[in-house]
């Protein structure tokens, strides 16, 4: 059982937080991670900023842009991860696009991830068809390569990802890019059901989850929820991180209270 899969337990919905590494700056990211752990997050997803984040909406695009402006590189992200792991035990995963990994070198990057205490990778522009090379290297280093599925995924694709994803499967809640939305997609329920029928892996729902109600609704269907853009907005609004802490704490609390309801 990997560090990531051990997070998923019966009667416990996983809370996964995404933040862009180096936003608003390097030190802040370490403090943010500590606050997220304290607030009850089970996994922290650190985004390595990329110049052309085509799966991301305006919020994460902007955070990535600001991080890059400050000279944040994949190496610095690895340093940030190592620093975070010195103060908290919450598992870390990197989310980034394929080109920065390719440029670093697949082997070198995976090796450095393990050294820094990173347990998994999410690469939104790397579908399983193109992922074989990276999979080989991640398996060798015991790093979980987490694949994504979307409401548009065919049953055949769901089968492929179910067989090859490690750690969990990232379910994109809607047909679109990352970013806060006013409500969850009506197609989510049927989508989760289709994946559940083909996989025993934990299923986590992300994209568009920006309110406590969304988290509850998604957690009723899946094993975990992933929140990103909303957290970036809260960090931007209040750099003391008080708003971030209070939001995460409220999501955690709500998930705990509702833990026994909503099996589909």
């Amino acid at each position: 059982m990997s560090e990531i899969t051990s997070v998923f337990k019966p009667d416990h919905k996983a809370l996964i937080a995404y933040v862009t590494a180096g936003y608003p700056d390097k030190t802040a990211t370490v403090n943010i991670a500590a606050a997220l752990a304290e607030g009850g997050c089970d996994i922290i997803e650190l985004g390595i900023p990329f110049s052309d984040p085509l799966a991301d909406g305006a919020t994460i695009q902007h955070a990535s842009y600001l991080a890059l402006q400050q000279g944040i590189t994949p190496q610095i992200c690895l340093d940030i991860a190592a620093e975070i792991r010195q103060i908290i035990t919450t598992p870390l995963v990197f989310m980034t696009y394929y080109n920065p990994i390719l440029r670093y070198g697949l082997e070198a990057f995976c090796k450095e991830c393990i050294k820094a205490g990173v347990s998994g990778l999410i690469v939104p522009d790397l579908p399983p068809e193109e992922g074989l090379e990276l999979e080989k290297v991640t398996h060798k280093h015991n790093l979980d390569l987490i694949y994504l599925l979307a409401p548009t995924s065919t049953d055949q694709r769901i089968g492929t990802v179910a067989a090859r994803s490690r750690g969990f499967i990232y379910l994109v809640s809607l047909t679109g890019v990352t970013g806060a939305r006013s409500s969850l997609s009506p197609e989510l329920k049927g989508f989760v059901k289709r994946v559940r029928a083909k996989s025993d892996l934990p299923l986590c729902v992300g994209f568009g989850i920006s309110k406590v109600e969304h988290a509850l609704e998604a957690a009723a269907l899946a094993d975990g929820v992933i929140i990103g853009s909303r957290l970036i907005n809260l960090i931007e609004e209040d750099t003391s991180l008080a708003a971030l802490k209070s939001f995460i704490t409220s999501v955690r609390k709500a998930l705990n209270e509702k833990k026994n309801t909503g099996e589909v």
């Binding site: 394929y98 790397l126 579908p127 979307a150 548009t152 694709r157 994109v172």
Partner: peptide, 11 residues
């Protein structure tokens, strides 16, 4: 190749 988000693969 096809290095795109999963959402687009069926399209």
């Amino acid at each position: 190749g096809k290095f795109v988000p999963e959402t687009l693969m069926p399209a």
